[in-house]
Each structure stands twice: as structure tokens, then as C-alpha cells.
Design a protein around this nucleic acid. Sequence first.
DNA 1: GACACGGCTGAAACTGTTTTCAGGATACGG
DNA 2: CCGTATCCTGAAAACAGTTTCAGCCGTGTC
Lengths: 196, 196
Amino acid sequence: MAEDTRARILAACAAVIARSGLARFRMSDVAREAGVSIGLLAYHFGDRDGLLEAALEEVTASAMRRADAAPESRTASARLAALLCSEFGDDPAIRAGSTAWNELRAAAVFDRDRSAAVSRSTSAWQEAVRELVARTAPGTDAAGTALALTALVEGLSGRWLTGQLTAAEAQTTVRRTLAALGLGAERNGPRPPVPS
Amino acid sequence: MAEDTRARILAACAAVIARSGLARFRMSDVAREAGVSIGLLAYHFGDRDGLLEAALEEVTASAMRRADAAPESRTASARLAALLCSEFGDDPAIRAGSTAWNELRAAAVFDRDRSAAVSRSTSAWQEAVRELVARTAPGTDAAGTALALTALVEGLSGRWLTGQLTAAEAQTTVRRTLAALGLGAERNGPRPPVPS
DNA sequence: GACACGGCTGAAACTGTTTTCAGGATACGG
DNA sequence: CCGTATCCTGAAAACAGTTTCAGCCGTGTC
């Protein structure tokens, strides 16, 4: 089935982006990762730009799925902390997803279409955070807080991916900031990573 | 003077990185921007990797100079706000510096040497913030707060550079977060950008 | 004036990578 | 069984970009 092949190719793309970054993105690396020929990439996606565009759409969709996958059956403040902390974790899939998303955000600085896609995904994530903030602390500036919290997580993600912080340190910083803003969860300390 | 030429080439590199990103970095673009030949780039820096390495060192040094340039004659809390907000501004040179720094951070995910350089620069900036936090609110966790504040600024910088926020909105978010953490400056609202 | 040296140019040579395409394999319908 | 369509390969052709280097120019020294 060709759809299955396209999905495998896009997953291979995300893996190559997460491993080497966009600056060293090579069709040959994707073909090897997916176990197909270079010609097949061109057959399905037209050319290198077409492949990259489809791959970055997949990275965006994957980021939105991760944001939606936060656990349900908890207090709003616990869900808020879990949602924010789901960006970090020792699971290689979480790291790969965060790295690919980080690359997409960096590329979005130079490309209006990518910037639009990143903006939509970020707005959806921020809206989810805003709702949880509004439930946790009614009457506060939930939108402003949601902006600050999601930006904080992106900044911490950068520190984690470059090795300046561990995932646990990043999660602790999120929780301490939530506590300092009066949004603290019932218990503190690093949580096990949310599966991706 | 060859030193003058090297400096012009490195400034041209930073400009090309800020305009097009690392993924589209071309020797020919740098030569054009600096008004020299491609051969001269190789004469001074060896090869493309040598040029990039020198350029990214310059980007790092430039980021550290920006952090050192925050104004002196103010209260600690005002200087803290100014230091954090100096990352955003309508001045094209500020934007270029932030973009180049953003590219360096993204590249640092994949390169240990660059990661080490980014880490040193970030630690220096974070230490400057920590000192100001300790003076503004003695007895609080200044190191943790400095980490959160600098990460917030990096996250907001990404939003600003991709067009999701204006510089003024980013600065307002920083000031509101400072206020929410009990580190507020004497007056609120967007400030004029600190010259770079 | 001759020579050495540093700074510099620009295009040929070279390398890396993408695009193209002839052709094979498989499945399906008539 | 044949024709058609789809999926796929892999290497030649094409293209993009870097590296190399012969040679020019200006300056300083003897």
C-alpha cells in the first residue's frame, strides 16, 4: 500500500531531522532510514522541497498529538503541570519529537508558511494551557499566563536539548514556576515522563 | 589591514545567518555581503567549516556583549527588566543578533562544541540575571528564578522572531511575569528598546 | 630596481547532492 | 494471457556549491 510507504518515509524524515537537523538533511539519509530508494522519495513527494514540506507538516501534527495526549483524570493544576512537562522526558521518542519541533521553529523564522503552521500549532497548545490556568486560578490573566508558561517550556526545551539541563531539571523548573505563580500542583518533584 | 577584513567577513557571516539561516548558508552570499571574493574567505578561514566556526564564535561574543550592555544607573529590578527585555526590539540590529543567536542555539543541539559555547554564554547571562534577582528579592531561589527568566526570554524570542508576537508584547510578557513573581519594576508597560 | 611577502581575485577542478528516467515487479481487470 | 496501472529501483545526468591555485597588486626591504 502506497499510503503505508508514505507514512514510513515521513517517519524516517522526522527521525533524520531529529538526528542531524535541517542543515544536514539529505535525501540519501532518509532513503536509508526508510529502507527505500532515493527515486521513490521523488516518486511520492516530487522533489526535496516537497518531501521537506510534507515532513514538517508531519512534525507539526505530531506536536499537536503530543499536546492532546496529556492525561485526563486529574485536577486541573495536575493536568496543567503534566501538559507542560510532557515536552521533556527520557524517552527517545519524546526527545526526537522535541528536537524535530525545535528545528521546525528555527526554520519558521525564515519561512512564512512554516511560521504560519508553527503559529497554529502553538496557539492550540497555548489555548489548552489557558483553559487549565483559568480553571486552576479563576480571575487571573489566563491568556498572559498561558503565553508565559508555553514560552518558558520552549526555552527550557532548548536548554534540555543542548544538554544544559536534564529533563528532570526542566520539569522541576516548570513546577517551581507554577508554584511561584500560584498554580502549583498538589505535589512537587520530578514526575515520570508522559508517554508520547 | 587583514584584521579589518576578517572582521568585515565575520560581520557579513552574521548578517547572512540572520537573514537566511544556517541551512541556506552559502560562501557566495557571504562574499557578496562582505564585498570580497570567495577565494578570500578560504584564504582567511581555511574552508567553509572554519568560516562557520569563527562566525558562530562571533555570534556568541556578540550575544555576551549585548548582555553586558544593559544600562547601569537604575534600581536592580529596573536593570533586571532591561537586561531581560534587551533581547527584543524594533532595531534591525537587535533582530539580526537574536536571529543569529537563535540559529546558533538550534545548531548546538547537534554539535557538542557549539553546545559548550552556547552553555558558557548562557551561563554568563544567567549569572548576571541571578545577581539582579538576588538584589531585588533577597532570600528567594535566585538561581532557579534566573533559569526560569532566561528560558522564558528565549522562548519569547522564538515567538517574536517567527512573528507570533511583537517585540512590545514579548517585553510586556516579561514585565508581567516579573511582577507576578514579585520582581516587578517600578513602572510597567513597554520600554523603548535598549541600543545594541 | 629586484625581490619577498601579504592580501586578494576569479574561474577551473572537484565534490556533494538532487533530479530524471529507463526499466523491472506486481496486481488487477477484461 | 494480455494490457494497464501502480509501485519501485538505481545510476546517469544535471545541478549547486566548495576548494584550489595561478596570477595580480601593493608595500617594504635591501
